[in-house]
Design a protein around this nucleic acid. Structure first.
Length: 109
DNA sequence: CGAATGACGTCTC
DNA sequence: GGAGACGCCATTC
């Protein structure tokens, strides 16, 4: 286990952790913010290690707002339930009003 | 060590 | 403009 890789992960965790409540973002947005726009997959993979962290992986979805990673959660609809709990409208594993609740790391400034 | 895969995204045809 | 192929980077087999 090299910490070098964790460095990239840490960046993802850092950004994901700053996601406002009731908002969602995409892997690509984070990846792009980190300067690794093409490594969006890596961002999602980073979420794999988000277990045990304060990283709200449920607030991170793909560009379409589809809960692609819900399968990686403990339950089946846990991710969706968490989002709905925050006021995010989710139907059929897809976030509604995505462009409205979509959050971009750039807002951190 | 080489090949395959993955919580995606962008490019190309 | 829709559909398909490729790339990224790291982990796993």
């Amino acid at each position: 286990m090299k910490q070098e890789t964790l460095n990239f992960f840490d960046r993802v965790y850092n950004v994901a952790r700053q996601i406002p409540h009731g908002r969602v973002t995409s892997y690509g947005a984070i990846a792009k913010y980190l300067g690794a726009a093409k490594s969006a997959r890596m961002v999602g993979y980073a979420m794999n290690g988000s277990g045990g962290k304060d990283v709200p992986a449920h607030r991170v979805v793909n560009r379409k707002g589809l809960l692609t990673g819900k399968h990686h959660f403990d339950g089946t609809n846990l991710m969706q339930q968490l989002l709905e709990n925050e006021g995010v409208e989710v139907v059929d594993n897809q976030i509604q009003n995505l462009e409205k609740i979509f959050w971009d790391p750039s807002e951190l400034d």
